[in-house]
């Protein structure tokens, strides 16, 4: 017990804040981007749908290091796009917090997109038609009818996206690196202290990650359960 107390007292809490910030920002970006692309893909023709869906889902099935490799190719400051971003806008993705966000978003986005798409496809198309004949704009139908009706699917997509973004390791370590206080996320911290044989510190971080992940899932389940209590679906 005393060891744990000692550990907690001397703990550098920066990985927690970096991970949380990264997870939240990546989830927010994925949420809107996921809904947007899911809506586009649901409406697309079957051929187009298969192709776009493939591209959007790839980051989920590839090893994160492969995604990291492509991200490095794109954003490296020795390559045209990376140079362009830095020279024109002063944006530095590699070895920066922006890199953390980029990596987490790319890896977690497909979860949001796929869940939203599945939920949208379940929606009775007559709801959309009814909205149109009632004079509602497509935009209004989407936000007031489609998204709420797809609520449970979207909520579970959000949970999974957050959980995945929070724990992202492979692509993050390649693109953002593990700079303590800057890009050092919890998962990278755990890997690092394990290499040093510091199982105590690793254990503390593991416990924290477990708590956050579990808490987020329970919270969202409660929220979506309450909102959906009286809604009958088929």
């Amino acid at each position: 017990m005393e060891n744990v107390a000692e550990l907690l007292r001397n703990l550098d809490w920066s990985p927690l804040f970096i991970s949380l910030k990264t997870g939240i920002v990546a989830t927010v970006i994925s949420f809107f981007l996921g809904l947007y692309t899911a809506r586009k893909v649901v409406k697309a023709s079957p051929g187009k749908k298969a192709f776009i869906d493939g591209v959007l889902t790839l980051p989920m099935v590839l090893p994160p290091t492969v995604a990291g490799f492509f991200l490095l190719l794109l954003f490296s400051r020795r390559r045209p796009f990376g140079i362009f971003l830095y020279d024109q806008f002063g944006i530095k993705v590699v070895q920066s917090w922006l890199g953390c966000i980029t990596a987490a978003t790319v890896i977690a986005f497909p979860l949001m997109y796929r869940n939203a798409r599945a939920a949208f496809e379940q929606i009775d198309v007559n709801l959309v038609y009814a909205g149109r004949t009632l004079g509602m704009s497509d935009w209004k139908i989407f936000w007031t009818v489609v998204v709420p009706t797809a609520g449970p699917g979207i909520a579970s997509g959000t949970i999974l996206t957050f959980a995945r973004a929070l724990g992202e390791y492979g692509a993050t370590s390649m693109l953002a690196g593990n700079i303590p206080g800057k890009t050092g996320t919890i998962s990278q911290k755990i890997a690092m202290v394990i290499q040093d044989g510091d199982y105590g510190t690793a254990g503390v971080w593991v416990a924290i990650v477990l708590l956050i992940a579990f808490g987020a899932i329970v919270l969202l389940n409660l929220l979506s359960g309450k909102a959906m209590k009286n809604v009958k679906r088929w």
Binding site: N126, L127, R132, L134, G135
Partner: peptide, 19 residues
């Protein structure tokens, strides 16, 4: 359809389930 001013009663009524 938004501008046609035609009401359509669907077989399953198509009420918005969350409203």
């Amino acid at each position: 359809p938004q501008k046609r001013n035609i009401g359509y009663l669907f077989q399953n009524y198509a009420l918005f389930p969350t409203m």
